[in-house]
Amino acid sequence: MASDELFVSGHRGCAGCGMATAVRMILQEAGPNTIVANATGCLEVMTTGYPETSWKVPWIHAAFENAGAVASGVDVALKKLGKRDGVNILAFAGDGGTFDIGFQALSGMLERGHNITYVVFDNEAYMNTGIQRCSSTPPYASTTTSPAGKVIPGKQGRKKPIANIVAAHDIAYTATATIAYHGDLKKKVRKALEVNREGKGPAFIHVFSPCPTGWRYPSEMTVELSRMAVETGIFVLWEQEGSDPRNRKISCPPKEKRKPVEEYFKLQGRFRHLLKMPDIIEQIQKEVDEKCENLMQ
């Protein structure tokens, strides 16, 4: 690892943690004049066991549900103290701290128009506490609180469309990204920080972060799953300025011939029960196809 890395090795992340790779890429792009406000979650726990730290940028963690609010406080304080120019402020949170418990603080931060880039690392469940369901958990995924049982086959309900909801706040820049498409991810980070620097208000990046521990797949397959999520159309890479979905640009279109969702499912223990349920797979395939067709229009 290069010595100028700002997120350094030695942390306690699981082998194959998609989020750790994403954080490293984001800080490479953001550079040393960056302050991070981090929600409680895997990222905080694995990187800051006192007296050690993986962060070579100023970093603050206060609680689970308030990365948006803590970052807002840092923003206005630096502004008042005349130290704001040239400094990037990033808010980092998991899907739990963003889709669920931290949703209100995020919405407040967006509405107030802080020049902050908020990044959600979405591994589709509360991984830090042991793989419990979240509103980010996809339908039928088996978690410890939405187990695939004899009667109920995993999570009921849909995945909350967080990036759409964020974009509906009419912020300057919203994007989705994942580590398999690292050039795309870095380009989006660059754009987001540019938006902040130009004083256009907040930016938001939804980073899809495969989790070998929670999804039950071999740790060397993180990048492959990240790519397959895009190739199947399960996770679509896009970026958008403002709230009008007509301004949405698909970054990496799911191919004309998308891979069947079953190929993505069969690599992961959390979906294994579905392989015996062709009706459900067919239904999910239909929903993914409809979603992708709508996005392409």
Binding site: I60, A69, A105
Partner: peptide, 26 residues
């Protein structure tokens, strides 16, 4: 002063923590 009108008291105290850690009198 910077007045930060948050969407809840929880966020008000959270922002106070961020601002104070950044060196402001809050």
């Amino acid at each position: 002063a910077e007045l930060l009108l948050t969407e809840s008291e929880h966020s008000a105290m959270s922002a106070a923590i961020g601002a104070s850690a950044a060196g402001a009198r809050v």
